[in-house]
């Protein structure tokens, strides 16, 4: 039900590893001796690493809370499905589902990869081409059927953003092979 959710054991261990690596890096920071300073650049990092290690241990041994209890202060993924405005639960095709893959984990990985591709192509292809292509492709993939509207939005949004930034505000976005 919840992709990428792990037990406190796993999370504690992961945070612990992060703390150890960070502590190692903190201890490799050179002492600053040229001018006398009361607090070394490595001092706070060492303390932070140590505190994080302790917190990781606490988390590791903490008993698992109910998953339902996890609603964080800034809107948790699952809570929303309960507040979904009276619509029937997920399985029914009450509204067009996003995406095409059965496993949400694959879907998320693919989505992250698509953003990566967009970022990688932003400068070589220029803002206009890459953004238009990205919007059009993603919208189509996610299952939007009105292709003309899609094309219009893709071209329109990229063009408006591009010309507003580069001509009006004089912020140079990558142009790519296009002459403007």
């Amino acid at each position: 039900m919840k992709p990428f959710t792990f037990s406190n054991r796993v999370l504690g261990a992961a945070v612990g590893v992060l703390a150890v690596v960070y502590l190692y890096l903190a201890f490799t920071l050179e002492e600053f001796t040229a001018v006398s300073v009361p607090v070394q650049p490595a001092t706070l990092p060492k303390w932070l690493g140590a505190v994080l290690l302790v917190l990781a241990a606490v988390l590791f041994f903490q008993k698992q809370e109910d998953t339902g209890e996890q609603a964080g202060s800034d809107g948790d993924g699952d809570e929303a499905s309960k507040t979904g405005g009276g619509a029937p639960a997920r399985p029914a095709a009450a509204r067009p589902a996003l995406g095409r893959l059965a496993d949400p984990r694959h879907e998320l990985a693919l989505f992250a990869a698509s953003i990566g591709l967009y970022i990688a192509l932003l400068e070589p292809l220029g803002f206009l081409i890459s953004t238009t292509a990205y919007i059009a492709a993603t919208t189509w993939y996610l299952g939007y059927r009105r292709h003309w509207a899609n094309a219009l939005v893709a071209v329109g949004v990229s063009a408006v953003l591009y010309f507003a930034m580069s001509d009006f505000l004089r912020v140079a976005l990558p142009t790519g092979p296009l002459p403007f």
Binding site: P96, G116, A120, T131, Y134, L142, Y144, M165, L173
Partner: peptide
């Protein structure tokens, strides 16, 4: 706005914002 349209637009907004701030692909990663 349908979710299928909104999602890529939010991504583009974030990308424009970060790029306009630092002009750096590194920051986009």
């Amino acid at each position: 706005t349908p979710r299928a349209v909104l999602i890529p637009l939010v991504v583009v907004f974030c990308v424009v914002g970060v790029y306009g701030l630092s002009f750096s692909v590194f920051d986009l990663w």
